[in-house]
Nucleic acid binder design. Structure first.
Length: 296
DNA sequence: GCGGCGT
């Protein structure tokens, strides 16, 4: 039906002994999966080394092999993007860009007589762009859906692997550079209706544990001129964040700030407060009040 | 039994 997935074992499914100076030869394989879509074979290898964790996705055809490397912080973004392409109506699909660390991943839809496909290419400085192409499949985008399912499994597994590593008897060579900076975001490739711009930061459907607003913390609201700004703490499967919503009339837009960025955000705001001091004196926070968080 | 990408 929709492609086989297997090979979760430890036996070197994809080549096994990489002798020679292969990059990542010493990296630990945490998860290893394969997916067949039409006549292509995709390898998913979640690997870890002292610098952190990454997902290697290879596309193998009879004569071709190409690989992209996704930093671990990007796996859930990939999952979200594949959900987007699976769930959206056929011709509402936009190109997307995903910036992660120093890399940019481009997602583009294409179509030819073989059918529709999603081209995912990785661009990084001083390396050739590499691309994989995922067939949509004939019915219900089952190729993309199968790909999405693998990503979901790996995303889940990646989370579970953190604890086993730490309980292990090995004296922690663990996750030194694993900075799961959530500071990545989608950028619409093509222009998109402004009203749906919030879609870029919202997750797609059916991800687990969408406990949007925890009962953690207190919401606050600021009135400034005709606008109101809401500050809400929330969390999702990627961690905790501060949502700042601007409401003016019936328009609302939000930014989602991962808590990892909050301190710098605060410093920068403080900077601007400092340099505009003389202009905002006397406008103290008289109209700032605390409100209860939305109940759910 | 595919074949897209890009130079």
């Amino acid at each position: 039906m929709e492609g086989n997935s297997g090979g979760g074992g430890s036996g070197g499914t994809s080549g096994g002994t990489d002798r020679g100076g292969e990059r990542g030869g010493n990296d630990v394989e945490l998860v290893c999966k394969t997916l067949q879509v039409e006549h292509k074979l995709f390898y998913f290898d979640l690997k870890e080394n002292p610098r952190g964790r990454y997902l290697k996705i290879s596309e193998k055809t009879s004569a071709t092999r190409s690989t992209i490397i996704v930093p671990s912080s990007g796996i859930s973004w990939f999952l979200d993007l594949f959900n987007y392409y699976v769930n959206s109506d056929d011709h509402d699909l936009f190109s997307k860009e995903l910036q992660l660390d120093t890399k940019v991943f481009y997602f583009d839809i294409g179509e030819n007589r073989r059918g529709r496909f999603l081209k995912v290419s990785e661009a990084s400085v001083s390396r050739n762009r590499s691309t994989i192409i995922v067939p949509a499949g004939s019915t219900r985008d089952e190729g993309w859906a199968a790909f999405r399912n693998i990503l979901a499994e790996i995303n889940e597994a990646s989370r579970l692997f953190i604890l086993p590593n730490q309980q292990s008897s090995e004296p922690s060579e663990h996750l030194v550079g694993l900075s799961d900076d959530v500071g990545a975001g989608f950028i619409s490739g093509h222009s998109q209706p402004a009203s749906t711009s919030e879609l870029n930061v919202d997750r797609s459907v059916e991800l687990p544990a969408q406990d949007e607003i925890g009962n953690m913390g207190v919401s606050k609201v600021i009135r400034a001129d005709q606008k109101r700004f809401f500050f809400d703490l929330g969390s999702n499967n990627r961690g905790h964040f501060l949502r700042i919503s601007e409401v003016a009339g019936s328009d609302r837009s939000s930014i989602i700030l991962p808590l990892s960025g909050l301190k710098q955000f605060h410093e920068i705001v403080g900077h601007f407060v400092e340099i505009t001091k003389d202009r905002i004196e006397g406008m103290t926070g008289a109209n700032v009040r605390t409100v209860d968080p939305p109940q759910r």
